[in-house]
Design a protein around this nucleic acid. Structure first.
Lengths: 128, 128, 128, 128
DNA sequence: GTGGTCTAGACCACA
DNA sequence: GTGGTCTAGACCACG
């Protein structure tokens, strides 16, 4: 089944992270986790732009990057489709950088690993 | 003991994170964890700039923000000194945002909390 | 002998070159080199479109251009047939643009002509 | 010595090849051939845009891609500098695709390799 | 209909 | 000063 609703995406206009990058990372994660499957048709640039009240170029930039990464593929004149998903190992790889950053910060704060882990466990539950 | 060596800091010029912000956060963490203690004299803007080959304005900006936050204090003619450290509760607070971000990403990747936790445990050990 | 099999053509959907243009150039070369001879019947638009899973309009566009060029001719009720082939001199002319482009690139790379020539000789052999 | 003149570049507005891509490929070749050396400062986006009467965004797009490729590096607030050049082997690699394309076309034209080679030799001299 | 490209002009963060 | 991002709106090529 294709990915009709442009409301797949939630962008935070206030965030310091550029909009196009928010889009890129969301698609990347949706693809890696299998919520977007190979062959699925992506909403058109115009659809997304209208639904999120963005400039088409902003969306286009995200699509261009995702194509370069191999996450999406262009079908000329027909729109973008989901290409190969990241492999199981890559899913974890997508999370690693953030965890590593957290580990470095914890160390600079001289926090005990067990304290950090139990805090993280709580946060994980809250987020669920 | 004062914190003479500018090599307290490690800045990553390649990172997307602004340099002044890297400095701010490192000082914040060093202060919160007690590695910088109240009264300690900070290296001068010029020293740091020279040691890390940064623009003095960049260092100055970081010092300015840290003063506004109350982490550092300006003593006329003496340079910056470390002010009050964050309290115990704040130390954890400094780590929370990054952990929350990791939790959100893990959920978007549909990863099992236990998997995430054990991965984080490994990374924490590696970082140690 | 007529040119039934639509597998005369190999199109690369991933290429930046438009599909209709790939078709045009392949037919042009096949005609110029005599692999398609005057009077040969071309496969129908529908046949090609089905065989290569292309949009019929794409094939039709290519045929239209080839008709304008005089490479193909439309016979009412009979489909397209091959018209006059390019003359001997034109064969070389069809190759020239690509060679010129290669020459310009070689020069911008400050590569020695002899080096380029021997590399090209190798590639020609591989392609054979 | 830095690369002051924005007239390093020659863009063909009429060409089907996008301007930003023309810029990318020219810089790539200049870097690979050593005409741009590591550490050289590139002209600013605004300089190039003005000199070639282009939109700054067009230049910026080229710079962005070159940074992603590792050809250029950003120095925050200071502009772009040339990063590592392609290695000797890569120089040839930059030329290969065009030569391969020429070889395929020659084969489809059923041209004799020797004929093609001598034609290319002539064109190489003309271009010189 | 699709995405790609470009312009014009604005604002922001960084050094 | 630098590059980065975004909007608004236009035109083009492709299918």
């Amino acid at each position: 089944m294709p990915a009709h609703p442009a409301s797949l995406f939630s962008i935070a206009t206030g965030s310091p992270e550029p909009i196009y990058r928010q889009l890129v990372e969301q698609v990347r994660r949706l693809s890696a986790s299998g919520q977007l499957r190979p062959g699925d048709e992506m909403p058109s640039v115009r659809e997304i732009a209208q639904a999120l009240t963005l400039n088409p170029m902003t969306v286009s930039k995200a699509y261009g990057l995702l194509e370069m990464e191999g996450v999406l593929a262009r079908r000329r004149g027909l729109g973008m489709v989901v290409a190969a998903p990241a492999e199981k190992a890559d899913i974890v790889g997508l999370l690693r950088p953030t965890l590593e950053r957290a580990a470095v910060e914890a160390r600079q704060l001289e926090l005990d690993p067990d304290t950090v882990l139990s805090l993280f466990a709580i946060i994980l539950k809250e987020t669920k």
